[in-house]
Simulated assay, not measured.
Amino acid sequence: MVPVIELRGGVPFGTALGLPVGQALVAAIIGNMIPIPFIIVYIRRIFLWMRRKSKKLNALVDKLEKKAHLKGQKVSKYKYVGLWLFVAIPLPGTGAWTGALVAAFLNMPLRKALPSIFLGVVTAGLIMTFATGLVVATVGG
């Protein structure tokens, strides 16, 4: 699981490997959610450590922080509903990992951000499951 693909690739990939759709969806949701609490709680400390290590890592942190702040502008107006919708939209640059980064930089408490991100992941998973089913029905049938 990589940040660019996350659940959006997990559902179609799992289905392509022969998993039943329900199992592919559940596996993608679980796999997508495992790092989320760690990102929200520890990302600022990790970024500080990375900044001290090297200039290359410092540049990477700058890039990620800029991304989080830009995405955070969209989320901050609607808070937790905005976070849910941001994570739920299956487009590049959105998703649970970016949503967790945004939540961390908006100082959203884990206990409030986690349910929004989880609902977003489930919503995105259902969208991707539906889209995968359409593609399979169209191409396979």
Rank of each mutant, 00 (worst) to 15 (best):
T129Y: 02
S54H: 03
R51C: 03
V81G: 02
L7G: 08
K112G: 00
I46D: 03
A103Y: 02
A28G: 06
I117E: 08
Q73C: 00
I127S: 05
A28D: 10
N58S: 15
L17P: 03
I30D: 07
I29C: 13
L114A: 13
L64N: 02
T94D: 01
P35G: 10
I36Y: 07
R44S: 14
V21A: 15
H69V: 13
L83Q: 04
G18P: 11
G120V: 10
L60V: 14
T129I: 01
I40L: 12
T98D: 07
L134G: 15
K77V: 10
K74M: 07
L17Q: 15
F130H: 01
M33Q: 05
L110R: 12
L134V: 13
P37W: 14
T94M: 06
G120T: 07
A100H: 05
A59W: 11
F13R: 01
Y80D: 03
L60W: 12
V121R: 09
V61Y: 06
A124Q: 11
W49V: 11
K56C: 00
A137M: 12
K55N: 10
E65Q: 15
E6S: 11
I36R: 03
I29T: 04
L25T: 03
T129P: 00
L110Y: 14
G99M: 04
G95R: 02
L85D: 02
P35Q: 11
I46M: 10
G10F: 02
G18K: 13
A24S: 15
V135N: 03
R52I: 01
L91D: 02
G14C: 13
A96W: 05
K77D: 04
Q23L: 15
K112E: 01
G125T: 10
G31T: 08
V87P: 04
A124N: 09
R45I: 06
V87K: 05
S76H: 13
L25Q: 01
K66M: 08
P12N: 09
I43C: 09
R44V: 07
K55G: 13
T94F: 12
E65I: 13
A137R: 14
S116C: 04
G95C: 04
V4M: 12
A68M: 09
G9N: 12
N107P: 00
F13E: 07
V102E: 08
R8A: 11
D62I: 10
I36N: 07
M50K: 08
K66P: 00
P35W: 11
N58H: 11
V139P: 02
A113W: 04
P115T: 02
S116M: 05
P90G: 01
K66Q: 11
L7I: 13
F118R: 00
A103I: 03
L7V: 09
L91G: 00
Y42W: 13
L7N: 11
A131H: 01
H69Q: 13
L106W: 08
V26F: 07
T138R: 06
T123A: 15
L83I: 07
